Amino acid sequence: MSDEPTCAYVSLENLSCCEIAGDDGLCFWHSPAIDKSGMKLKDRLEAFAREDGLLQGIQLKEADLSDVDLVNRGYNIGYDLSYADLYRANLTGAHLFNLTFRHGSMMKADVSNANLHCCDFTGTNLLGVRWHGARIDSMIVGEQLKQEQAAHRAGRWQKHKTALDNFEQCEEIYRDLRKAAEQQGLFEMGGHFIQKELTMRRYQYPPWSARRFFSKFIDLFCGYGERPLNVIVFSIILIFVCAIAYFLLGTTSSGEAVGFSSAQDWQTNIGHFLNSLYYSVVTFTTLGYGDITPVGASRLVAAIEAFTGSFTLALFVVVFVKKMTR
């Protein structure tokens, strides 16, 4: 048994490295003090992975890992490089299928033409990553980016400048991911990223500003053009709200009042509500048969509903066609 000291690195999962330690108490792979800039480490890293070396937390800033193959063949679980630092690393053409890379740093790394299928980058810094030609289908980035979480924390602590900077970084990351997804023909994924991109942009607007309010409305209304179902839900809600307004404010049909009255029995009131609902539908769709006519304040409601309905139907067609023709 060797008396040489082993690496002092211990991961957050309490996994220890068994490599020989250097002067700083850490091995070649885990020592940030060893400059690996430009070092061609493809073969060494592949051998280290095959020998079940601890890949978590490895420090490979600016290392040359082009064409590295880190596919854990024969196993359902890929290699785990969580907490690793691959700042500006060259990973062009790398094979990283099913790799776990959580809470690490890929900042400004080059993954051009790499296979990142099923990789998990949850909590990883992806700012400035070059995605050109990379296969990113089924890639996971988590519900929130690392900078997104930091931005929300900074906002709660009233550190607005820090929050703004992090939201700007998030917007850039999501924009790059969206472009990469669209380049690969992954339009569903691209649609998700554009929603996140525009959401990050919204957070950069001043609170309570008109731009922020309008952006939030568009998000709720149609998910920035990516959620046609939202338009349908909005339409149904508007139709029912206006129907209730017509029922309470009153309309006329063939000279007879149509609306709620405490003097009427419940069957008559239900019938009048159904007539109000019918009138709301034809007004929303701008059909306007003319068999029911608004009176008094109902005319204002009808005008607003007709305008909103025509706009909503046109928007739904645009959003639906956009989704279906991808």
Results as ranks from 00 to 15, higher is better:
Tyr87Arg: 13
Glu188Val: 15
Ala303Asn: 09
Ser82Lys: 02
Ala47Ile: 08
Phe234His: 13
Asp43Ala: 14
Trp131Ala: 06
Trp29Gln: 09
Thr268Pro: 00
Leu248Ala: 05
Asn275Ser: 00
Leu116Ser: 00
Leu54Asp: 08
Ile239His: 00
Asp80Arg: 00
Glu62Gln: 09
His132Gln: 08
Cys119Lys: 03
Thr122Lys: 03
Val233Gln: 11
His192Ala: 08
Ser209Phe: 14
Ser31Cys: 02
Asp23Phe: 05
Gly142Asp: 13
Ser138Arg: 10
Asp64His: 11
Glu46Met: 07
Arg178Gln: 15
Ser310His: 06
Arg326Pro: 07
Ala180Arg: 03
Gly93Cys: 11
Trp29Tyr: 07
Phe217Lys: 04
His30Tyr: 02
Trp29Cys: 05
Leu126Cys: 06
Leu127Gly: 00
Gln184Val: 12
Arg211Glu: 14
Phe121His: 02
Val129His: 01
Ala134Tyr: 02
Val231Met: 11
Ser16Ala: 14
Ser16Tyr: 01
Lys61Ile: 15
Ser310Ala: 14
Asp43Val: 10
Ala47Val: 06
Arg227Tyr: 07
Ile136Glu: 01
Phe101Asn: 10
Gly223His: 05
Met324Ile: 10
Ala302Ser: 14
Met324Gln: 14
Ser261Cys: 11
Ser31Gly: 00
Leu65Arg: 00
Pro206Val: 15
Ile244Gln: 08
Leu54Gln: 01
Thr325Gln: 09
Ile232Glu: 05
Lys159Pro: 09
Arg50Val: 04
Asp120Met: 09
Ser298Ala: 13
Gln56Asn: 10
Asn115Pro: 07
Arg135Lys: 02
Glu148Asp: 10
Lys179Ile: 13
His103Ile: 03
Ile232Ser: 03
Tyr174Arg: 10
Gln169Met: 12
Asn275Phe: 00
Ser82Leu: 07
Val282Ile: 13
Asp23Asn: 10
Asn90Pro: 15
Arg44Thr: 00
Phe213Pro: 04
Ser310Phe: 13
Gln158His: 08
Phe247Ile: 12
Phe217Pro: 10
Phe311Asn: 07
Gly185Phe: 05
Ala134Cys: 05
Ala154Val: 10
Ser215Lys: 02
Cys119Asp: 06
Gln56Trp: 01
Val318Leu: 12
Arg178Thr: 13
Ala63Lys: 08
Asp52Tyr: 05
Gln204Met: 15
Glu4Trp: 04
Arg212Ser: 13
Tyr289Val: 09
Leu15Glu: 13
Cys17Trp: 01
Ile34Pro: 03
Phe316Asp: 06
Thr308Asp: 06
Gly38Lys: 01
Gly104Asn: 06
Tyr278Cys: 11
Gln56Ser: 07
